[in-house]
Amino acid sequence: TEVDLHLGDITIKLKDVSEEIVKRAKELFKNGWSAEFVKKWIEEAVK
């Protein structure tokens, strides 16, 4: 499945990412993480 994760003005296309990771990524962004950091976190999380 593909998900578009909207973080501010940046959209990250996610492939084969669990709902849990998407939820967590949104929380991290809301908590002040930059979109770049969230993207890196996701990449690490799906390895």
Rank of each mutant, 00 (worst) to 15 (best):
S18G: 09
A25G: 04
R24L: 11
E44V: 06
E27L: 08
E19M: 11
A35E: 05
K13W: 10
H6L: 10
K39S: 12
H6M: 12
L7S: 01
K26D: 05
G8F: 04
K15W: 14
V46A: 07
V22K: 04
G32R: 01
I10D: 06
D4W: 11
A35D: 03
W33R: 08
E36K: 05
K26Q: 11
T11P: 04
D16Q: 06
E2T: 13
D9R: 05
D16I: 03
D9W: 04
G8C: 03
K39W: 08
W33F: 14
L28M: 14
K30W: 08
K30R: 13
T1Y: 12
K15Q: 11
R24S: 10
V17I: 09
E19D: 13
K40E: 13
E44N: 08
I10P: 02
R24D: 05
D4F: 13
E43S: 07
K26Y: 15
V22M: 08
E20V: 09
I10C: 13
K23V: 12
A45F: 08
L5C: 04
K13I: 12
E2M: 15
V38M: 02
I42L: 11
K47V: 13
S18Q: 06
V46K: 07
V38Q: 00
G8I: 03
K39F: 10
D9Y: 06
K30I: 10
D16G: 15
T11F: 08
L14D: 02
T11Y: 07
K40I: 12
K23Y: 11
K40S: 12
E43H: 07
W41C: 01
V3F: 14
E20K: 07
K47G: 12
A25T: 01
V3W: 12
I10V: 14
A45Y: 09
E2K: 06
A35R: 03
V17A: 06
V46P: 02
G32C: 04
E44R: 05
V3H: 10
E43Y: 08
K47I: 13
W41F: 10
V22R: 05
S18R: 06
I42M: 04
T1C: 13
K30M: 15
E20G: 07
I21H: 03
E36G: 08
S34D: 10
E2R: 09
K23C: 11
S18A: 12
T11D: 04
F37A: 15
S34Q: 06
V22G: 03
D16R: 04
G32I: 01
I12G: 02
K39Q: 12
A35V: 13
F37H: 15
K13F: 13
A35I: 13
I42G: 00
E2P: 08
F29V: 05
E43K: 06
G32W: 02
K39C: 09
E27N: 06
S18M: 06
N31K: 11
E2Q: 09
L5R: 02
I42E: 00
L14M: 04
S34T: 12
K23S: 11
E20P: 05
K23P: 00
K30P: 01
S34W: 04
T11M: 06
K23R: 12
I21R: 00
H6Q: 15
E44K: 05
L28E: 01
R24F: 12
K40L: 14
K26L: 15
K39E: 09
K26I: 15
A25Q: 00
S34H: 06
V17K: 02
A45K: 08
K13C: 15
E36W: 05
E19K: 08
I12R: 00
L5V: 07
F37I: 13
K40W: 14
H6R: 11
I12S: 03
A45W: 09
R24G: 11
A25L: 04
V38G: 00
I10G: 03
E19S: 07
V22E: 03
S18I: 06
L14G: 02
E36R: 03
S18K: 09
I10Y: 10
E36Q: 11
K15H: 15
L5K: 02
D4C: 15
A35H: 06
F37L: 13
E19F: 09
K30A: 15
N31A: 12
E2G: 09
A25P: 00
K47R: 13
T11R: 03
R24P: 00
I21C: 03
I21T: 05
E43G: 05
K30H: 13
E44S: 05
I21P: 00
K23W: 10
A25Y: 01
E44T: 06
E27H: 08
E19C: 07
I10N: 05
I12D: 05
L14R: 01
E27C: 09
L7N: 02
I12E: 04
K13H: 15
L14P: 01
V38Y: 00
D9E: 10
W41A: 01
T11V: 15
F37C: 07
K40N: 13
T1L: 12
V38R: 00
G32L: 03
W41K: 00
A35C: 05
K13D: 09
F29M: 05
E27V: 06
K26A: 10
F29K: 01
A25M: 03
L5H: 02
V22W: 06
L5A: 01
V22D: 00
F29N: 01
N31P: 01
V38N: 00
W41H: 01
I10A: 07
H6P: 06
L28Y: 08
V17C: 04
K47F: 08
S34V: 05
V3C: 08
V22Q: 07
V46S: 10
K13G: 08
L5E: 03
F29D: 01
F37V: 12
K13V: 13
V17S: 02
D16L: 04
K30F: 11
V22F: 06
L28P: 00
A35Y: 06
F37D: 14
K39I: 15
L5Y: 02
L14C: 09
K39L: 13
L5W: 05
K30Y: 12
E43A: 08
F37Y: 15
S34K: 06
D4A: 14
K30D: 15
V17N: 01
L5F: 06
I21G: 00
L7K: 01
D16V: 04
I21Q: 03
E19G: 08
S18T: 08
A45P: 01
R24Y: 11
D16T: 03
D4V: 15
E44I: 07
G8H: 04
E2N: 10
R24N: 10
L14Q: 01
E44W: 10
K26F: 10
H6S: 10
A25E: 00
W33M: 14
V22S: 04
F29S: 02
E27M: 09
D16W: 09
L5S: 02
E20F: 09
K30E: 14
L28T: 00
H6E: 14
V46D: 04
T11K: 05
R24K: 15
